[in-house]
Amino acid sequence: MESKHEEIKTRIIACFKNKLTPIESPSNELVFGLKPHLLREVATELKENKELLFEQLTDLCGIDYLTYGIDEWTTKSATNSGFSRGVTRQPVILDDADSFDGERFAVIYNLLSLKLNIRIRLRMFTGEDNPPIAPSVSDIWSSANWLERETFDLYGIIFDGHPDLRRILTDYGFVGHPFRKDFPISGNVEIHYDQEKEKIIYKPVSIEPRTLVPRVIRNDNRYSEDIKDNNDG
């Protein structure tokens, strides 16, 4: 299994030279990064190259890296007064900012080659544009059609060349992109049926956001590679 992984990795690197950059994966998967302008070229080659044949796009999704690696409850040193239960929330970044951090939004492509029986994953950052734009691959893999619509709906990433880029999962007339990290978990509007007006009324949410379990990051030594090596030796 290991050698097969390595062999295909070298095959892909040889085939694409500097178009794809390998990304280290602790769970031993084949992950590559690429730039948006190369996507369609690389995708076509991955699908049609007789030695690769990544014929199936298993999954396509977006990621918002806005709060990556940020915890809500950091304890720097021990205190003698105890820790506060309060969590530190990140300030909300407005959606109408002119541009994003270049590494904020990424599109992930999970590909499967039935011939080689292997999966690879491509990660593509969309860059600084607002709204983020990525080329569509729905004419290369048909399954991308709805997946791109979903990613557009949830993250607001626009897929250039998509035949029918409409919202898919959220309500008709929904405002915002709910899976962005700056979108609150309780949403922005709540609805109820008004008996007198005899229609559905939208109004801003009345519930406060709350955190039941704070997000913490423990740098657990058990998973640290260098310490593991030391222990073995």
Binding site: D59, C61, I63, D64, D71, N110, V213, R215, V216, I217
Partner: peptide, 16 residues
């Protein structure tokens, strides 16, 4: 399939 991204926290960063 479940695609899981972890940033080392006690909650997943992204679940697809």
């Amino acid at each position: 399939g479940v695609y899981l991204v972890s940033d080392g926290a006690n909650k997943p960063y992204r679940v697809k």
